[in-house]
Write a protein that binds this DNA or RNA. Sequence first.
DNA 1: GTTTGTGAACCACTTCACAGCC
DNA 2: GGCTGTGAAGTGGTTCACAAAC
Lengths: 243, 243
Amino acid sequence: MPDFEKSLTKSVAFPRQSPVEESLSVGDAPLRRIPEATVARLPVYYRALVETAEQQVVTVSSERLAELAGVNAAKVRKDLSYLGSYGTRGVGYDVEHLLHEVAHELGLTQDWPVAIVGSGNLGAALAGYKGFGARGFRIVAVFDVDPARLGRRIGELEVEPFSDLDRVVRERGVAIGMIATPASAAQDVTDRLVDAGVRSILNFAPTVITVEDSVSLRKVDLAIELQILAFYQQQKAARRAGA
Amino acid sequence: MPDFEKSLTKSVAFPRQSPVEESLSVGDAPLRRIPEATVARLPVYYRALVETAEQQVVTVSSERLAELAGVNAAKVRKDLSYLGSYGTRGVGYDVEHLLHEVAHELGLTQDWPVAIVGSGNLGAALAGYKGFGARGFRIVAVFDVDPARLGRRIGELEVEPFSDLDRVVRERGVAIGMIATPASAAQDVTDRLVDAGVRSILNFAPTVITVEDSVSLRKVDLAIELQILAFYQQQKAARRAGA
DNA sequence: GTTTGTGAACCACTTCACAGCC
DNA sequence: GGCTGTGAAGTGGTTCACAAAC
């Protein structure tokens, strides 16, 4: 098997924590500092574990988990070791136990109300997307500024006026905001969300937005993904031609 | 200004090139080996340059470009240095010139026909998404297996049967495939695309897929993004409570 | 015998800091 | 005096390889 490692998406806007006050423990929770790269892989392990559990498998090796997650076994072991020592040498990991630990670490045992801003093509698709619901993520509002779109039904929701954002965020306890507006509106919308108290933002608008350090920001940028693929595709073509 | 660096998405499934035959030049093109992390940022610089050019600005400093791209100036300079020495000390970079060089490097001077497999919520949204078109990426086909969806119009296209994939890929010279199917179909669809000759894949299905080394694979996974945000959000809550 | 957990070695990327050129 | 280009130092992440535990 070829080793096509390196999956995943790296984060943005992370505190980068002043070198002082590094690895503190909080209360009795151990709270090891988990590397960003590891955090980004935990959801992949989580999914692999869910599938494994569904098949009534009781224990799983790092080897097998690696295969399911598309990484190598050493990485799996090191990643999981940041959570604690949940494996048994000579045996592997107890699927149910590990599943629970990972879910807990990721916060999937709680509910995360999500609001979407922008009800165009993409916003509507996101609102209708199954596959979140699975664990804790619930779309509780879709906003738009365009009066023509207000009241339009999307799944169980209706599009609400952006001007209600503050109130709705408060009332429904929105924890995560998704930006699905045109690029030109993205920064303003972000600022409004942050002002309303939202501290986690997922940006789909094709533009750079900035937030204060206390806010987590990640982005998904279709055009960028395509351009990266184009780069490597072109590279391959060049290699074929020359060399 | 706080330094919220670290943007961007890292790749997947990259050759990792056998250590032998490293930095060869092809023909007369210099072809320095550009780090993956740099490649992932070039599209961001590209966008910043386009905006800058639109405002009739003639030269731009690494400082300014960094601001627009949401990174720091040292990174911009190092990144651009992989492409060549296109700046002028004491002055900055000529916007038009740099724009052209970056576009060329990314392969944005050519046309990239894209096919989408899956015409559900997400597939349809992707097909209708403006913001690709901008540079070279043209959706030329949308496929589905569901007979009920065939013939449905999406923008200027109609949904075509998946069984025609081979022929259509050949006839329209599809270079990039996007997977917007349920997870269960993603690996099979990928294999079909690869068999048909597609060498760049963008996977939106929430599952790990694998491809041979010669194929570039990137993924966009909404659920994973949300879970990563949830992790950090929970972390913040814990920090607020304890410590 | 098997498989984890983890120091140590390695590698990729980032940041620093300054010489070199305008 | 200003800004780039880049070696060198620093940081974070990956892989190796093996002792420890079953």
